[in-house]
Design a protein around this nucleic acid. Structure first.
Lengths: 249, 249
DNA sequence: CGCCCGTGATTTGTATACATTCGGTGTATA
DNA sequence: TATACACCGAATGTATACAAATCACGGGCG
């Protein structure tokens, strides 16, 4: 137990390298477009080339790296348009999952669990004044909601692709909850978001597939609006958004 | 030139291994769920473990393999439902690409090229009697049509995920064109498909996004119908469908 | 002046030996 | 008879030496 450092579990070197690299990519140590050199990295991480290579390979599967022409890897870089599209794509996939769940009829137990999460989300708004929202808790529960929702359609294929899109840090459902903590507008957008959560679940319960799909898409567009807001207000913000270092061009 | 065997380009061993393994997976040498052992494979392919491992990693990115619990890889296996969902997902993604293209306004030149492909597709139906369709040519052109269509929305993110889904052999747009060569019904379904191609392009030209999306989804459902047909008529067919060996459970 | 080709350094590709881990099997003891 | 422990073997994980390919740079030639 004592060896569980914050960074490096001693499980195996590949996982350590994956973790290390992912941290650096998301938090800006390695900007979008940067090429990764095996030897340099292995010296820096004190790990031999083989597990480093393996780690890069896994991060490519994850979508954070891409294979460079002529071998090797580079940090994947995203244009503003790419980020927008990724959010739209998440909406499309969540919409599809919701529609399928509605069409097939969703499992009652799972729906009840989702309802419980929604109640807890409501509790986050407890303080009536504008300021007293528990952002961390909201973010956590929001993530759970979206995960459970995706499972409702019971489709491995859809779930898998959705996980893939969500693994892009800025396309995750909770990306902007933490990103824009300060503003009053962001609190209002959370109120709207929660209303959409309720409507979405209702649509699925009533087997209104088209409605469910439309709501899910619109729900994702809140993230898009928040993205625009983030880029307008604090142009050079450091950690206003996870993975902001990947966005270039 | 003389060393360009049918199987192994001498470029490098990783690519050779990727190619070899992909062939075996798609054509049934390695059934869905099979675990791949590095040593056995490297002996069999006469390639050392390192490039074999690398190849497996790439095939995992491609979606043909998955990482097994406790290390290593196994051939990904698909239930009938998974195949169905993959086709539906392709429809959803192509639909999104079409909608975005319609909303943004598609490039005239690209649209003209697509129109030319459609004309060529029409030519495939030249012989008036039921039998005289050039399936190979149709299949090739059909693939080109779908590729060009996806490019219309000019979105890297959408394109990338679409490529990913299409890389599953049975989810590719042309999977069933070759698969069901014999039947008269399949010829009819190609006529319907071509009509949908025209309608889809028209919708994009007229910037009718919702219509374009709906047509693209419906178009993919032809593949789904052909899938059902394939499974009804020839239950144990060997190569009636590329990648049929992946379908289990 | 520009282009092409060779050469060297840098970087990835490949082979292989050794380490580690996990699972199975058998035996011994309670 | 059941359980626990230890050993063995097979598989992946890791390190590293060597090979091959690629890129940048500079010199020679058209």
């Amino acid at each position: 137990m004592s060896e569980a450092k914050s960074e490096s579990k001693s499980v195996n070197l590949t996982k350590r390298a994956v973790y290390e690299l992912r941290q650096r990519i998301i938090h800006g140590g390695l900007a979008g477009g940067t090429r990764l050199y095996e030897v340099a990295l292995s010296e820096e991480l004190q790990i031999s080339r083989t597990p480093v290579r393996e780690a890069m390979s896994r991060l490519a599967e994850e979508g954070l790296l891409e294979r460079a022409s002529g071998g090797g890897f580079q940090v994947r870089s995203f244009s503003y348009r790419d980020v927008t599209d990724a959010i739209e794509l998440r909406g499309v996939l969540e919409g599809t999952a919701a529609r399928l769940a509605a069409e097939q009829g969703a499992d009652k137990t799972a729906l009840a669990e989702i309802g419980a999460i929604l109640d807890e989300l409501d509790d986050c708004f407890a303080g009536e004044a504008g300021e007293s929202l528990d952002f961390d808790r909201y973010s956590e529960l929001n993530g759970q909601f979206h995960a459970k929702l995706a499972e409702l359609c019971q489709s491995n294929v859809i779930l898998r692709e959705l996980e893939r899109v969500k693994s892009l840090p800025f396309a995750s459902p909770s990306a902007f909850v933490l990103g824009s903590q300060q503003t009053r507008r962001s609190l209002q957008s959370l109120v709207v978001a929660q209303a959409q959560h309720r409507a979405l679940v209702q649509a699925i319960e009533r087997r209104e597939g088209v409605r469910a799909e439309a709501i899910a898409r619109e729900h994702a567009r809140i993230a898009r609006a928040n993205l625009e807001q983030t880029f307008i207000t604090e142009t050079q913000a450091p950690d206003s958004l996870p993975g902001i270092a990947l966005i270039t061009r």
